[in-house]
Design a protein around this nucleic acid. Structure first.
Lengths: 392, 392
DNA sequence: CTGAAAGCGCTTACAG
DNA sequence: CTGAAAGCGCTTACAG
C-alpha cells in the first residue's frame, strides 16, 4: 500500500495526494476530503524512509540521555516528551552510558538520522568543547552549562550547582555543623560534581575551613552502590564528621544505608544532605534533605529554547533555573548540649511532605518506643493523607 | 558526500562501493581495501533513509518499554541493549505510558520503521489478543506471558508470577502470619498483578483463608506515591493485619514509608514483602524482603529467543525463568509470645546483602539504642564491605 | 569480480 | 487547483 494506490483509489494524481498529506495549501477541499477518506479507509501510512530521503533532514528531535537509570533525567525526560508531543515534534530518545562521549555519538547520529535539533540530558561540556563544532543543528545542554563554550548553536539550561552546593554548606553551618564531609563525583572527570564540589569548598572557605580532600572527601559514581561504599570509606577514615553532603540523591540514599549498617543513626549521629530532589528521596527513612532541581522548569525551558532556535534567528542562551533547598528530616541542629550526646532534634521542614511529617510528629532519629500511634496522631495523620493527594 | 563521491574518489563503480559497504563476497581484496580507505578518509556515512528505502525492512529491533520509570524494566533494558549490540543488532527503544496500548503503537511503528523484530517490556496480553495479528514480524513479550495467545510470531519470557506470589504467602504463613493483606495492582486491568493476586489468593485458600477483597486488599498503580496512599487506606481499614504483600517493590517502598509515618515499625509491628527485586530494595531501611525476578536471565532469553525467531524456522516459546525469594529484613517470625508484644526478631536472610546484615547485627525493628557501634561490629562491618564489592 | 541500469516511495518545482 | 516528471541516495539483479 503506497501513495500510488491512494492516487488510484481516490482518482487523483500522486502529486495531489502528496500535497494533501503534507497539508499544502493549493488543494481543493473536495480533493482533500476524498484523499483523506481513502487514506483513512485503507489505513495508509507514508513510508518515512522515502519521505525523509526527499525531505533531506527535518525529521525528529533527538534526545540524548546519559544514564538510563538516572532518576533525575527520567523526571526531566518525561516532561520533555510531553512538551515535544504537544508541539507536534517527534522525539527520538537515545540512552547512552554515563561515560560515553555523547557528542561523538550525536555527530554520527546526525549523519544517519538528520534530526532538526538535539537535547542533551547530562551532556559533558568537555566533550562539547572538543567536538560540538561538527554538529550543525541547534542543541541544548540540559542540566549542565554551556558557559564558556562559544558555539552559536548551543544553549544550556541548568541549575546553578555552585550556588546550590554553597547553600547546602551554609545551611549545615547554620545548624551548627563544622566537620562536614563530602561524598560523590570526581574532581577531574565530572563537570557537574566538579561545580558542586567547588561551591561547597568555597562556602567552607568563607567560614575559614579548607576542605581536606584526603580526609573529608570521597569520590564515587552516581549510584546507590557506590554511594554506600564511598560513605563507608569516608566515615571509617573521618569518624568525627557530623554531617555529610552527598553530591547526588542516589549516592545519598546508598550512604544512608551505609550509615545505618555502621550502627549510626541519621540525623541522630550524622546529618546527611543530597542533591537533585528525586522522587524517592521523599520516601526514605528519614526523608532526605536535599537540593531540588526544578525538573519541570528545566524541561520546559529546554524545549522552549530549542524550539526557538529551530526558527533560526534566536541567539543561544545560558539559562539557570532556580533551585530549592528542601529541608526535610536528615539534618539535625547541632546545639552545644548535643555534642554531649543528648537526644537528636529533627530539623523543621519547609516543603510539603516535610511539613506534614512534622505535624505527625515522626522524625527519623526518634526511637521506636516514642512513636506509638495514639488518638491524636491518628488524626494528624489523616491530614497528611489528604495533603499528599493534593501535592502529588 | 554520497556513495557516488566514494565511487569517483576510489575509481570504482557505484555498485562495487555498495558491495564493499555491505560486506558482499564478490569483491576483490584490492577494491575492498581501496574503497574502505576512501570511506575512512572522508568520513563517509551511508544515508540510512536511502538504504532502508531499498532494503525495505531489515532495520533495527524495536524495544517497547511500558513505563519509563519502571526500575525493573530499566534493569532488563540495560542488559538487552548490551546483548543486542554484541549481536550487532541495532536497538530502537520506545518508551510508552503504563496504560498506553503498545500493540497499536507497534503496528503504526511497523509501517513507518520496518523493524526486524520487537521486544515488549511489560506488554499487556489483552492488547496482544486484540491486535497482534496485525504485526508481521517476530515479537517477544518480556515479563508477561503469551500463554493462551496463539500467534505463531509471538513468544514470551517471564517469571511465574502465580508461583512466586504463592511462595510469598507460604513464607509469610511459615513465619506465623495469618492476617495477610495485599496492596497494589488492579484485579481487572493489569494482568501481571492479576496473576500475582491470583497466586496469593490460592495460597491463602490452601490454608483455609478466603481473601476478603473488601477489607484486606487495596489496589494501586506501581509507584511509591500510590503505594504510600494505598497502604494507609489498607492499614486504617484493617489494623489487625500482621503482614502485607505489596505486588511491586515501588509500591512496597512507598508503603514502608507510610507504615513508618503511622508510627508503626517494620518488621516489628508489621511485616512487608515486595515483588521484583529492584536494586533500591536492597538499600531501604529495613532491607525489603521480596521476590527477585532474574532480570539478567530474562533479558538473555528474550534476546536469544527473538534472534532465533528472526532466522525463521524457530517456533515461538512461552518460557518461565526461575525466580527467588529474597529473605531480607522486612519480615519477622510471629511466634506465639510475640502476639503479646515482645521485641521483634528479624528473620534470617539468605541473599548476600542480607547474610551480611545479619552478621553485622543490624536489623530494622531494632531500637537505635541497641545498635551502638562496638569493636566487634566494626570488624564484622569491614567484612560486609568487601563482600559487597564482590557481589555488586 | 565489476559496471550499467532499474527502482525503492516519496516530494516538489515546473507547466498548465 | 492539478498532473507529469525529475530526483533524493542507495541496493541488487542482470550482463559481461
Amino acid at each position: 500500500m503506497d501513495i500510488r494506490d491512494i492516487a488510484r483509489l481516490s482518482g487523483y494524481s500522486l502529486g495531489t495526494v502528496s500535497r494533501v498529506l503534507n497539508g499544502h495549501p493549493n488543494v481543493s477541499d473536495k480533493a482533500r476530503m476524498r484523499v483523506l477518506k481513502v487514506v483513512e479507509e485503507v489505513g495508509y501510512e507514508p513510508n518515512s524512509n522515502a519521505r525523509f530521503l526527499k525531505m533531506q533532514g527535518r525529521t525528529a528531535i533527538a534526545v540524548f540521555v546519559k544514564g538510563a537509570r538516572n532518576l533525575l533525567f527520567a523526571d526531566i525526560l518525561e516532561r520533555i516528551q510531553a512538551l515535544l508531543s504537544e508541539a507536534d515534534e517527534q522525539a527520538d530518545v537515545v540512552y547512552l552510558d554515563e561515560d560515553e562521549n555523547e557528542v561523538l555519538y550525536a555527530i554520527h547520529y546526525q549523519q544517519v538520522r538528520h534530526p532538526k535539533g538535539m537535547l542533551f540530558l547530562g551532556g559533558d561540556p568537555a566533550f562539547f568543547k572538543t567536538s560540538f563544532s561538527r554538529v550543525s543543528v541547534p542543541g541544548v545542554l540540559v542540566t549542565n552549562t554551556a558557559a564558556g563554550l562559544a558555539f552559536k548553536n548551543l544553549s544550556s539550561v541548568s541549575t546553578n550547582d555552585v550556588e546550590a552546593a554553597r547553600e547546602v554548606v551554609e545551611y549545615l553551618f547554620s545548624r551548627g555543623h563544622r566537620r562536614i564531609g563530602i561524598v560523590g563525583g570526581n574532581r577531574a572527570l565530572s563537570q557537574v560534581s566538579g561545580r558542586r564540589l567547588h561551591g561547597a569548598e568555597e562556602a567552607l572557605r568563607a567560614h575559614g575551613i579548607e576542605l581536606d580532600y584526603e580526609r573529608d572527601y570521597e569520590p564515587c559514581h552516581f549510584s546507590m552502590e557506590e554511594g554506600y561504599d564511598a560513605m563507608v570509606r569516608l566515615i571509617m577514615r573521618s569518624p568525627d564528621l557530623t554531617a555529610v553532603f552527598a553530591l547526588g540523591d542516589a549516592i545519598a540514599l546508598g550512604a544512608m544505608r551505609a550509615v545505618f549498617d555502621m550502627g549510626l543513626s541519621i540525623p541522630g549521629d550524622l546529618s546527611l544532605v543530597g542533591f537533585d530532589g528525586v522522587n524517592s528521596s521523599q520516601f526514605s527513612i528519614p526523608r532526605l534533605t536535599t537540593i531540588r532541581q526544578d525538573t519541570r522548569l528545566i524541561a520546559t525551558r529546554s524545549v522552549e529554547t530549542l524550539l526557538a532556535c529551530l526558527g533560526g534567528e534566536t541567539k543561544p542562551v545560558r539559562e539557570m533555573v532556580p533551585f530549592q533547598l528542601l529541608k526535610r528530616e536528615s539534618v539535625r541542629a547541632l546545639l552545644p548540649e548535643d555534642r554531649a550526646g543528648s537526644a537528636p532534634v529533627a530539623d523543621g521542614g519547609d516543603d510539603a511532605s516535610n511539613a506534614v511529617a512534622a505535624t505527625v510528629g515522626v522524625s527519623a532519629g526518634r526511637a521506636p518506643e516514642t512513636a506509638k500511634a495514639g488518638r491524636t496522631r491518628a488524626r494528624a495523620f489523616r491530614v497528611q493523607v489528604s495533603e499528599r493527594r493534593g501535592v502529588i
